[in-house]
Design a protein around this nucleic acid. Structure first.
Lengths: 122, 122
DNA sequence: CGGGATCCTTACGGATACTG
DNA sequence: CAGTATCCGTAAGGATCCCG
């Protein structure tokens, strides 16, 4: 019943699809880190909780709309948690959830792989 | 001179950017696997060399244009090699280069992470 | 401070038809 | 067989202005 794929690459049936499926683990992971600025936001939050303004300060050229979009999507996926502290001015705090912290090894591997590719062509 | 980031996540200055930079290793790796169908094409080629038609047969609902686009981009990046065997009908063969094979651990990690995220919410 | 509401532009993916 | 050439709709990213 082999599907012809390396079992380490495709360990179970969910990865043996013939087209992009949102339920495929690879697509799930890609969706989590996809979108411009997303990995940078995750990098910031990996260092600890951050407010909206702190994120903007760390990433000065991201627009408010895009940052809001990224945080909303990450929150929707359960990767980031949001706390609003009442008062004026309003203070918020974004932080990685347990699920969000699971992205860490993937980010490390992204860096490793990218560095290897860069070294290859140089 | 710490930048405040975890040194495993951001091992050198190339990862300490304040906006998306094409030279950042993370962006390089993301670019390599980005685009719909790309990881599926890579999965097929990981199993061995494939012709254009074989790839279409394995991924029946991908259009010729998109498949061409993906193969051209992967080839341009030096991740995939192309051999054209003269004759009629024309036969081609696409295969992973040494650089392309370096994407394998990343694909494995994508699957692992995605599976972990799916397990988390279920 | 922390966004929401608009508007705009372009990049991407897909469908269809055709060619060496 | 292995693509190329067009055309098209959508969605993503970004700029600007406004509000609680």
């Amino acid at each position: 019943m082999s599907d012809g794929f390396d079992p380490e690459l495709v360990p179970d049936a969910r990865g043996a699809t013939r087209r992009p499926e949102p339920e495929c683990p690879v697509e799930v992971a890609l969706a989590a880190i996809s979108g411009r600025w997303t990995t940078l936001v995750l990098r910031e939050l990996t260092a600890g909780p951050r407010s909206f303004g702190e994120l903007r300060a760390a990433l000065p050229t991201v627009s408010a709309k895009v940052l809001t979009d990224r945080l909303a999507e990450l929150t929707r996926r359960g990767l980031v948690g949001k706390e609003v502290h009442a008062g004026f001015p309003t203070r918020t705090s974004y932080q990685l959830t347990t699920a969000g912290k699971r992205l860490r090894p993937l980010l490390v591997e992204l860096y490793r792989t990218g560095a290897a590719l860069l070294a290859e062509t140089t």
